[in-house]
Design a protein around this nucleic acid. Structure first.
Lengths: 250, 250
DNA sequence: CGGTTAATTGAAATATATCAACCGGTGTGG
DNA sequence: CCACACCGGTTGATATATTTCAATTAACCG
């Protein structure tokens, strides 16, 4: 159903430490990520250093069941957070793009999700104790973290509704609009959207097959709603119709 | 696709205040509920009083979009947390049973989910400021809350996997096992499971139709895995096979 | 410019939804 | 106490959406 992830060695190359990246951990913009997950924006600064690591496309950053020792920030590239079945079935719970954090799965001692690079990706890794320290010391920190988690949860609930009750057209249109918003792009016509991911990733996020995603995008293209200049790019030609499609008015 | 919820007036009858119910808010057992949501177990006590309210079957306790003013504890009956489309489609994100809390959607100012009684239900309502107060004063409180939210999130992610990538049989079997665990019931044969909900609620949790749920339960019955003594009861006759079914080994 | 990978399209198979009838308990009124 | 109506659950037949399998085309890379 889905492509087995090639598991490369985490032969990531350590680089110069990244100072102050954590300053932004409390984005609290409620827009992004996943619990186990991402967080954009910036908030109360705090001192921290992390090592830079590089990952190749499809390389695992951490896996479901690994002990939690660190959390991460994407500096370039993109990351998917997913669950895998032994037989290869895969469900993507969310994506992380540059500036976003992931791996905040600290409640337990093990990650509950797998994080994989979707393209050549660099991340900054922070030791878990940074979070714990901050949690103890900063007054506003934890409440930011809480609202962040609430935001994640809300996103997950919308994703549930999508997988459980939306049609294929609604899902694909909703996905595209979501990606537009994520980039902070205007909801105008003729906006170019870089997906930064292949069809399989879209399919695994939407709970569909790659062929169904293709066909649906082609349908939208034929309807004049989209253009597809390249495999990972979408030109939004009629956002009004795209929104109508997302709302089942098509 | 799903039954429109009859919206009764919240003509709930206020009763004697419930003291100390909040003592248990930090169950932190990580087993239950939904962010917007439930929390069982018990932890650091703290003083709080709430009024008791009663709701009839299918009556809304709060709705998606309502301003957040309170959170709740189920004292009897059961509650579903769901998202609704204008056309009647419904996705249930989770259930709450006696002892569990819900409505902890405090990050925003509006509920992101609708809470409805699934049967005659009584709840204790606490003003939102109780949470805020606790959050400020209690050292361990917020961290409990955080781990609770992480647990909710993890549950939601498993639910995503279920809706996106599991077959119907896997979903139904997984659901039944989940309900067993929820009751703290042993995973033994010949355990009687009270569902406390109708087929439509199961269907809306699993992203299926009521007929498909029926047929699948009948299949499991025919396979000797279950007995169905009453519409809302399941007799688990062969838990081993039920687990195998949940894991796709059938 | 070949060779490899990803994307697209087509045709057939299949799972699930839809539509419709039937069943069984429960409660009410005669 | 029985008859009937009501509601939820079950089953059957058919329609349909989506997957699966297979082939083709397009993009990417050395």
């Amino acid at each position: 159903m889905s492509i087995g992830t090639k598991v490369f060695k985490p032969a990531a190359s350590a680089q110069a430490p990244d100072m102050g990246g954590l300053a932004a951990i409390l984005g609290a913009n409620g827009m992004s990520g996943h619990a186990e997950s991402r967080a954009g924006g910036r908030v109360s600064g705090f001192p921290a250093a992390g090592a830079v690591f590089a990952f190749e496309r499809n390389q695992a950053i951490f896996s479901d069941g690994d002990p939690v020792r660190s959390f991460y920030k994407v500096t370039s590239g993109s990351v998917r957070l997913c669950k895998l079945f032994a037989d290869g079935r895969r469900q993507i719970a969310g994506f992380c793009f540059p500036g976003e954090y992931f791996g905040l799965a600290w409640q337990g001692s093990e990650y509950a999700l797998t994080a994989e690079a979707m393209s050549e990706t660099t991340v900054v890794r922070f030791p878990q104790h940074c979070l714990a320290d901050l949690d103890r010391s900063s007054a506003g920190f934890r409440s930011h973290l809480v609202s962040l988690l609430c935001g994640e949860l809300s996103l997950a609930q919308n994703h549930l509704l999508m997988l459980g009750r939306q049609t294929v057209k609604e899902r694909v249109a909703t996905f595209l609009l979501m990606m537009l918003d994520r980039r902070g792009q205007d909801r105008r016509d003729s906006v170019m959207l870089d997906l930064h991911m292949g069809r399989q990733d879209i399919a695994d996020y939407l709970g569909l097959t790659i062929e169904t995603v293709c066909r649906t995008i082609s349908d939208l293209k034929r309807a004049g709603i989209l253009g597809v200049p390249g495999p990972r790019e979408i030109l939004v030609k009629n956002i009004r119709l795209l929104q109508a499609t997302a709302n089942g008015e098509a």
